[in-house]
């Protein structure tokens, strides 16, 4: 195995020394320490077993109880789609459907909703992704000591069929992803779905041709630049949009509804979100697979 965090942690645990080991020692062990090791182990095991059974039973009871409560609650909710509930009978839905195209310039209402009406939420969501990447990087990115020799990577399995299929499929997948992103304001799709498709294409490429091949264009610097630029653009666009909509002058750069460059900022935002999602997906894959981008 390569050096991973758990190896490091064993060393760290040793460094901390007496205090930690003293804390670890619980009272039960102190009592049984006088017994011969085998008997001691048996006692501990037995106690553990009863505790575990108790734990499982109580957890199951809680679980069943909660599910029961929630199922009962669901029956009190308004019926879905029958046209009498508050969700369908309110002015928001009406406004979105009737005036959506005029107000956002996007023929795809979902995109209009995500990137225009509720763009602040989407801004937050793209940062949720970013936070997740940061956390995974903290956890999985290896800290390489410059003095130590680099650890040999495992060579990928050289599969001919996979390579051949991938060489045909990957361009198509990435192209399709780009299509979905670009047409986000016109047809079903958008940044999140298109980005996911592109990420999947990149993962397939990396599976077929190995890390070294992807490393040529997708390294940590590239990853950071792309995500940073996308997120900064997003922040900038939305800041301008929010600021002007309150303080004026209101920007009306919607274009012709139905064309690719319609929807004002929506096109740019879709692009940014798509890039962030694609990079995040592929970045996750790389981090989990080999511990570095």
């Amino acid at each position: 195995m390569r050096n991973n965090i758990f190896d490091e942690n064993i060393d760290l645990l040793k460094d901390v020394g007496e205090d930690v080991t003293e804390i670890e020692k619980n009272e039960k062990e102190e009592v049984t320490v006088l017994l011969p090791p085998k008997a001691r182990k048996r006692i501990l095991k037995q106690e553990e077993k009863t505790l575990r059974v108790f734990y499982i039973i109580s957890a199951a009871i809680c679980f069943i109880f909660l599910i029961g409560v929630l199922l009962i609650c669901v029956t009190y909710l308004p019926l879905f789609g029958n046209g009498t509930s508050n969700v369908t009978l309110n002015e928001i839905v009406k406004e979105y459907i009737e005036n959506g195209i005029e107000q956002t310039g996007a023929t795809n209402f979902v995109t209009g909703m995500i990137l225009d009406y509720r763009a602040f939420d989407t801004l937050g969501e793209s940062f949720v992704l970013f936070t997740a990447v940061t956390c995974v990087m903290i956890l999985l990115q290896n800290f390489q000591d410059p003095d130590e020799p680099k650890i040999e990577r495992i060579k990928m399995f050289n599969d001919r069929i996979l390579r051949y299929t991938a060489s045909i499929l990957v361009p198509l997948i990435i192209l399709f992803g780009a299509y979905v992103i670009l047409n986000g304001s016109i047809s079903p799709g958008g940044g999140f779905s298109g980005g996911a498709i592109m990420g999947a294409g990149l993962i397939l490429y990396s599976l077929a041709f190995g890390f070294d091949e992807t490393n040529k264009f997708f390294n940590i610097k590239f990853f950071k630049t792309i995500t940073s630029i996308s997120l900064l653009t997003y922040c900038g666009c939305k800041a301008v949009s929010f600021y002007t909509s309150v303080n004026g002058p209101v920007i009306h750069a919607f274009g012709i509804p139905g064309a690719i460059f319609s929807g004002g900022f929506i096109f740019i935002l879709n692009f940014c979100v798509g890039l962030v999602v694609a990079c995040t997906m592929f970045g996750f894959y790389l981090l989990f697979k080999k511990g570095e981008i």
Binding site: L13, G124, T131, C135, I138, L139
Partner: peptide, 20 residues
Amino acid sequence: VFLEISTLSSVGLTMIKNHG
């Protein structure tokens, strides 16, 4: 959404020391 950001960042802060 921002609750999620604070959750994830707090999990990150919890393991920042990278210690068992």
